[in-house]
Simulated assay, not measured.
Amino acid sequence: MVVADDFFLSGLNKPGNTSNAVGSWVTPVNVNQLAGLNTLGISAVRIDYAPYGLNPPHTHPRATEILVVLEGTLYVGFVTSNPANPAMKNKLFTKYLNPGDVFVFPEGLIHFQFNVGKTNAVAFAGLSSQNPGVITIANAVFGSDPPINPAVLTKAFQVEKNVIDYLQAQFWTNIG
């Protein structure tokens, strides 16, 4: 039986803990936290940023994201990848956002947000899926378990093995 609580969640007024390696925290509201979102095609997140905090480059394989800044100033952007038009290949789109500003990250594209200010920042985002997924690029590539063979990564990134060894030795963790 469905009840009102299946469609209710409190707590997005509480800041997330940004005392981590990247200085941000994502509080999700998707079908895993709120059963009532099942089949509705929407979800949301609250993102808290410490001064100079980063929501690292990541992608949502199943959703477009619309971000609204409530506090602070964010430098945001996304990168196109393998489009039909070669002139748009790996094109970076960026903006500086202030409170009340909105920016859209198209589905599946790598994107990021960086707090450029000396104070905390807060943003909310809506996503076009009840289960948008998230792939944090550095975590997936350098923090996989078991690790990706360094020979693959040295060739892919065109760097020496010691760089790959260093990156794979870092403490990779999901934020939020």
Rank of each mutant, 00 (worst) to 15 (best):
T59S: 15
Q130A: 12
V76K: 01
V163D: 09
A151H: 10
I164E: 00
I135C: 05
Y49V: 07
Q158V: 11
T73A: 14
A35L: 05
D145A: 13
V159I: 13
V159F: 12
E71L: 03
V76Y: 00
I110W: 05
N139G: 10
N13Y: 04
V26C: 13
G126Y: 03
Q170Y: 03
S81R: 09
A121V: 03
Y75S: 09
R46K: 08
Q168K: 07
A84D: 13
D101F: 01
G53M: 11
G108L: 04
S10Y: 04
G176W: 05
P147D: 06
L37W: 10
A44R: 04
V163S: 06
Q130C: 03
S43Q: 10
E71H: 09
F112A: 14
P132E: 04
N120L: 02
G143A: 13
G176N: 07
G16W: 02
V31A: 08
G41N: 08
L92C: 02
N98E: 11
K95N: 15
Y96E: 12
I135N: 07
D48F: 01
L97M: 04
S10N: 09
T119S: 12
L153E: 03
V152A: 09
G133R: 01
G100W: 05
P57Y: 07
R62V: 03
L92F: 04
N174V: 08
V68W: 00
S128I: 13
V159S: 11
G100A: 13
S129N: 10
K95H: 11
H60R: 02
F142V: 11
N20A: 13
